[in-house]
Design a protein around this nucleic acid. Structure first.
Lengths: 344, 344
DNA sequence: ATGAAAGCGCTAACAT
DNA sequence: ATGTTAGCGCTTTCAT
């Protein structure tokens, strides 16, 4: 049978004190005598007293909870970011409520509502792919609840309590391709994803600019739209191998496709990296399990989560007298050179 | 400026009605006139009224929130399970609060406390590796808060509102080892984890029984306690290779250790699977990227999350007149045979 | 150093 | 069909 939980009132009655004193004692308030504190704590322990956060939050007007809204918690990236968020939030004393939009705008709206109703003190969002209408974020802005977009951002959505944490995809791609050039590669192919996503647009642009800046021609036949899976990468690779002049390197917009391509290349008796070098993107766990190990651009996903929470925290503390929103934070990528691209 | 949010009281005053009527209208209660409902909804929309869940939860004594406690949200397994949980919980109209223990018992205790304080209606837990002392779950049991252990369970922790969703590790291991025997392996090693975790105990027992049932001797020297990482697996492998009679197969309690071991074996010029075969456990994404591809036992992780929530839901609905706790649910494994164990 | 009292926003039993 | 009242458990101002 569910014993009703001991409340402050219960403690008060049992000790012949007032609820206010109990409350103060439990929160270690200065002007409660040490003796009383001891008595209170002891009884609280004995009765397994559990403070009711709901009540405290309601009274204080502060829920101590952050809301997180991600497209989903699968794959590599989002779990990692969520991990970073949860860890940092815990460190700062916040609870975390997590919702998934399943890449669906309607669910995103519903979840934003839900988070607001739950009186979260701030919201961290990565947009659903399909989201073009941003009216549901209006409410957040109006209530002046701090809002941080990460990875996927709403463009032109300004506000004094709105900011973002992004990843410099352009620079990551640029670094990767430059490294390939330095290794002596001259026909570098690129596997790209759909360009309505900024990440793919930027990675492609980084690729182009790196080539141009190093006086290499851009051959559109070497830029292949492919599904970002091992299978997709494999198909793209086969397509490239049919060219009269095959590429001597592949920079893929993700690791999965790179691995698939590498497998196909090896099946065609090409030596990696001597005949053809590979670089992926995201530094997935498995990149060190392939043979040769796959070079990749590391995104520091947990760093992104951590940074996002810190940014939010800054807004919460900033108060109303802060001038303007905190600047968006752009995380720098790091190229990890492994065997698949190391020719020298 | 943070406009104070409109409350029910505000709506009541503005419309010249009582708060109770507003409350009833908003929750579409039967005995409010349609006309009133319309008026109320309209004004609510206009003022962007957001119900305060905190207050409602406090009043109702029901928070509409489930607590989730996992060792971490990284790797393959836990994100997948959490995804299953979050999805199913959303479907059932629950919010989800997520905590990580970081495999640390003290944090686990703190998080359980936190969840209880947050008045969650039920808790889903996968234990930290290091947890030997279960006193923190006593409180949960005493408060009669439904508790579901998944994947990692506390043995001998019974209660009318305690249950679990497990994976049939024994059977998975048994299948894996039987398969190795059928491939002609006769000296099969096992990498095991710490045995206070049932998953490892059961995997070990499945290993033993499969050998015995097929009339193979059990050589304790072939059973190695190792850290479940590539590095740990590598070390264990080196240890095995020093034996006068090395093993001709390894069944590892997880994929990471298997991969590490496989790399070491290959570095020693052993051919996989001809000289030595490998099977891992969990069917991580990267198992298809290794060379040769790693055979593994698939756990259907998202199914586990979904099932766990459904079980919890059953307890919540069951009420106090239910007889005994719901039976633990055991999910069946599936052996995926890939190159690393396929000799014929 | 402690107590009395009010109220956070909501709901539900009990009126009318 | 609507209103009155009380209270969920806690914190905090204002006494004393």
């Amino acid at each position: 049978m569910a014993n009703r939980r001991a409340s402050i009132t219960d403690l008060a009655k049992a000790l012949g004190l007032s609820p206010s004193t109990i409350s103060r004692a439990l929160s270690n308030h200065d002007d409660v005598s040490e003796a009383t504190k001891v008595r209170v704590r002891q009884l609280a322990d004995e009765l397994h007293y559990q403070p009711n956060q709901l009540a405290a939050a309601l009274r204080r007007g502060r829920s101590n909870t952050l809301g997180v809204l991600v497209p989903h918690i699968t794959g590599h990236f989002f779990p990692q970011v969520v991990h970073g968020i949860a860890t940092e939030a815990a460190k700062q004393g916040f609870n975390v409520m997590i919702c998934q939009s399943n890449e669906d705008t309607r669910q995103e709206q519903k979840n934003i509502d839900l988070l607001m109703n739950s009186q979260v003190e701030g919201i961290l969002v990565s947009l659903a792919n399909s989201t073009h209408d941003f009216s549901h974020f209006e409410a957040v802005r109006q209530q002046n609840i701090p809002l941080v977009f990460f990875d996927r951002e709403v463009e032109d959505f300004q506000g004094s309590n709105v900011s973002s944490v992004l990843f410099d995809d352009y620079h990551g791609a640029y670094q990767a391709v430059t490294h390939l050039i330095e290794q002596g590669c001259v026909r570098i192919a690129h596997f790209r994803g759909p360009l309505h996503l900024n990440i793919h647009k930027n990675r492609l642009q980084g690729y182009r600019d790196a080539l141009t800046d190093h006086h290499l021609p851009i051959d559109e036949a070497l830029i292949v739209l492919c599904e970002m899976t091992p299978k997709g990468g494999g198909q793209a690779m086969r397509q490239l191998l049919k060219l009269s002049r095959r590429p001597d390197a592949v920079f893929s917009a993700n690791d999965l496709a790179a691995v698939g391509a590498m497998q196909v290349a090896k099946a065609h008796r090409l030596r990696v990296p001597t005949d053809i070098a590979f670089i992926g993107f995201s530094n997935e766990l498995f990149t060190t399990f392939t043979e040769p190990m796959l070079s990749s651009v590391d995104q520091r996903c947990d760093q992104m989560g951590k940074t996002a929470v810190q940014l939010l925290q800054k807004m919460l503390k900033g108060g109303p007298n802060r001038v303007g929103p905190p600047k968006p934070i752009v995380l720098k990528p790091k190229l990890l050179v492994r065997e698949s691209s190391q020719r020298k």
